[in-house]
Amino acid sequence: MKTGFTDPVLDAQAGFRALMQAMARPGRVQQVIPPPELPAGLEAAAAATILTLADAETPLWTDAGEEARAWITFHTGAPLVAEPASAMLLLNTGATMPALATLHAGEDETPQDGATLIRQVTGLAEGSGWRLTGPGIEREHHLAVMGVPGDFPAQWRANAARFPRGVDVVLCAGGRLAALPRSVALREGG
């Protein structure tokens, strides 16, 4: 079994601050402290996000391989679920992404129950790509994301349209991550 964080307390704190900054400033890319060893298929930022957020209280869906599933269960105790719709956290590493519309979006009185999708992508870059506006952004941020489905912007518009219900997304590439809270508006091509 591969190890988790070198320092479970302070590395989780650093991981959370990266996530908090990412969620509060959508489109800004943050760095995490990587776990020293990674199970096959998981990169540092996605692994750190799981170690930071998941525990026995977070039903988790993932399409990662057997080693990663065993690693998550061992280090976090999160119950693995088969259906994306019944998960609170989703760790998506494969080529296909579960459609945002199929995930739990919370209810009008309890929108906080909406799921968090952690999607491993191939690249993240500030300054070009999608134009993001909304809370956390002074004027506009630009974020280029490699490795999401072509219809992601359309899916995101549908997700943002049902605000305050909705799904929040954490995009992870290597040791870096950025977040899309449901409150953010996304437009393609500058």
């Binding site: 989780a12 908090m20 930071t52 929108p111």
Partner: peptide, 15 residues
């Protein structure tokens, strides 16, 4: 802390 941190992330997402 994890419980509060998860709550904080959702609180930021729904201002």
């Amino acid at each position: 802390k994890r419980m509060i941190r998860r709550t904080l992330l959702k609180a930021i997402a729904i201002p």
